[in-house]
Design a protein around this nucleic acid. Structure first.
Lengths: 148, 148
DNA sequence: AGCAAAATCACCCAAAAGAATGACGACAAC
DNA sequence: GTTGTCGTCATTCTTTTGGGTGATTTTGCT
């Protein structure tokens, strides 16, 4: 920061000196308007370029962003693995609702069946997955690729 | 691209015209060297700045590289969100074991504490997450980024 | 030393979940 | 027409879970 201020001052001083000197030359030698203009032009062009660089240099940054892209994109609910485990579509459906944190009663309500039915389905799914609890069923369901 | 070329031409033309006009004024009115110089200076300064910006912009390209990192790889268990929810480390630990499908008894055995203790911890965690069931707690835990 | 948060444990009660068994209708396959 | 699978539902019983309350210990911080 301090260096910058100093530099600006210095350049300003030099510029003024140059101009003064040039003007003097101009007055003495009566034909160098072009030189005069050219000098000023060149000086300010350089100054401008330098300034522009200075201004933009501050934000010159290459950002490499590591975005945790949701792998698999959409997740294809995988009939193949489901059938390999002998799990019926209905059972899979119940398993998904379980994984969403619903109770048996809520699932029953959502599917318009009795709570007992949900219990049998879930029991069978647990059996086929080798799970003893619904949380375990969810865990295994994901491990088998049945759930997202 | 075409627009840029056009712009350059236009600015060039205008510049020449302005200079011509200024020179003319200079010849007619015999005392305006300063104005002449100032104009040139200003023009070239602006041009220089603009040029500088243009030049640096070419190589300044902010590259946002999106690296699809498989989400399972890292996952930092996120102390920030945990504390934001007022969940203690121990509670988080129990939550993780729940999400792995363990029963309260199994968790108790694994952590060498009583089943009652596990129950209190889990109850508190459910409360803080707003969950009524452990499956729901798991679901919410994932939604909050507390679980992988 | 003294406070506050965290962790520990107990007891009781209610609700939810799970296991076991049996049963019935629809439907497709043989 | 028999067989088998699937989905449906009930009943009974045990286990698990969750709610509520209170108490003690550990630990970190002032």
């Amino acid at each position: 920061m301090k260096r910058h201020v100093l530099l600006y001052g210095l350049i300003g001083g030099i510029l003024i000196a140059v101009l003064k000197w040039t003007e003097y030359r101009f007055l003495v030698i009566e034909h160098s308007i072009e030189i005069y203009g050219g000098l000023i032009a060149a000086t300010f062009a350089v100054l401008g370029i330098w300034l522009g660089l200075k201004l933009t240099n501050r934000q010159e940054r290459v950002v490499i962003k590591e975005v945790p892209v949701p792998t698999g994109g959409s997740f294809v609910p995988n009939d193949t693995k489901r059938e390999a485990l002998g799990i019926t579509p209905r059972e899979q459906e119940i398993l998904e609702l379980i994984s969403q944190g619903l109770s048996n009663r809520e699932i029953a309500g959502k599917l318009f069946v009795s709570e007992n039915t949900v219990k049998t389905h879930s029991s069978r799914v647990f059996d086929k997955l080798g799970a003893k609890r619904r949380t375990q069923a969810v865990q295994l369901g994901k491990a088998f690729g049945l759930l997202p």
